[in-house]
Design a protein around this nucleic acid. Structure first.
Lengths: 240, 240
DNA sequence: TGCGCTCATTAACCTATGAAAAGGCCAACC
DNA sequence: GGTTGGCCTTTTCATAGGTTAATGAGCGCA
């Protein structure tokens, strides 16, 4: 699978082929960035939204004392910054976690496409809904789950999201991010992340070698981390 | 200030009087709920969005083991569930923290108003942006701030938000919620919330008696909790 | 082959927070 | 005016996770 194949660009929302083609057309001019680069910096006023075609990215914020939190993870096919329909200053930044191929879609083009193609407008809305549901679940992890549970939960989530994008092989998938990135996702120290991964391995729930994650016991992992994937299953939109 | 006065209904977004009147008109039929009641339950499919006219409310989720997290707090004048433009099943619930006066605005009416009055559509977008910025900052608290800092930070936030709604008296405001509600906001135990409040008091940063909060040292509290309110100051929207 | 980098792993010790339990305050109610 | 119940407060003890530091594994590169 070449990283820039147009079919990679489809995301969670359901789109008729014709509409999907319009989006793909908008994302034709792609860019690349190495790992660890800002795609959109904090405090700037973006005029495009970003479509990730390949690689992993994240939204993040940094505290005055240097502590960092990755508030969201974006996977191949994800649309970042869906709020971009209005320009405004970024209260956070968007950065790559791995080498990334992405497209910048101008707000004006998005707005026009949404106006002219109601299914696209709906797809954008559903993408937004899905992202906020994911962020809410992330808040639950931060507030009320133990480190091991946070990791187990997100591994289940990645599995579902990557499966929707056709990027899993059974119960295995590439998770090309560093343990430090996972730590910043969950507000943990790297040491604790490492300890918790060890525990998940020792419980026979996962295997993680060379940035490839395999869920050894899907039911067990879901049970262990109280994962209920319904928050990801945005039903088919209804036109009203 | 009577709780149902129409001017209470204005929220953060900037609206011309004429547009504001339309929103107020939509919110004319109000309802009441006691403290601790669900306004919108998890798993239901809402057909209206909720405008809080008086009292405090929250979004929350509950884990299988009974642990609860309040993911957002809604203050008088706040519009909850701004994603309601599309109907879908709720992945969380909306509940009152105090007795609340609110209005249910049908999605169809919102959609019509947005279509016919561009400024209203923009105001809805800006409301959405502000809410997500607030939630992102909440994630930072959950992930990377100590209990005392979380509390100090949210007290600064409440102060700004209530000031925008004309509900502060200098550096004092009513905070009619229980310590247990604050604990569920930050994933803390009630004991730790209490301990942390004691520390903020002892440092001379706040006073809190009879559900009335006074910030004794605004600069000190902001410094202590790394509060930077720019995430709340959504600038005037630009029509493009 | 060996240097130098980044990342993963482990250990020792320390701290913030959780859990359980008990008492205090206050307002509503009988 | 005493009782009841909700909330706040404080204490004690247990633990998840932070911090620091040292080691190891893998890999590009001279």
């Amino acid at each position: 699978m070449g990283p820039t194949l147009p079919q990679e660009a489809r995301h969670g929302a359901q789109l008729a082929d014709a509409d999907e083609r319009i989006l793909i057309e908008l994302a034709r001019r792609t860019q690349r960035a190495e790992a660890g680069r800002d795609i959109v910096a904090e405090g700037t006023e973006p005029h495009s939204i970003i479509l990730i075609l390949d690689g992993w990215a994240c939204r993040y914020k940094v505290l005055p004392d240097g502590k960092r939190l990755n508030t969201s993870i974006f996977l191949p096919g994800d649309l970042c910054e869906p709020f971009g329909v209005l320009p405004r200053f970024m209260d956070h930044a968007l950065a790559t976690l791995t080498p990334v191929v992405f497209a910048r879609i101008p707000l004006s083009a998005i707005r026009r496409a949404a106006r002219e193609h109601p299914r696209i407008e709906e797809a954008l809305w559903w993408d937004l809904l899905a992202m906020t549901a994911i962020e809410r679940e992330h808040m639950i992890s931060l507030g009320r789950r133990l480190a091991t549970e946070r990791l187990g939960h997100v591994f289940c989530e990645f599995h579902l999201r990557l499966a929707m994008a056709g990027r899993v092989d059974g119960l295995s998938y590439d998770m090309p991010v560093t343990q430090s990135a996972l730590s910043d996702l969950f507000g943990l120290s790297v040491v604790q992340t490492n300890r918790s991964l060890a525990e998940l391995r020792q419980r026979g729930l996962i295997s993680l070698r060379k940035r490839r994650l395999t869920i050894l016991d899907l039911e067990g992992l879901r049970e262990f981390s109280s994962f209920d994937g319904t928050y990801l299953q945005t039903a088919e939109p209804v036109v009203t």
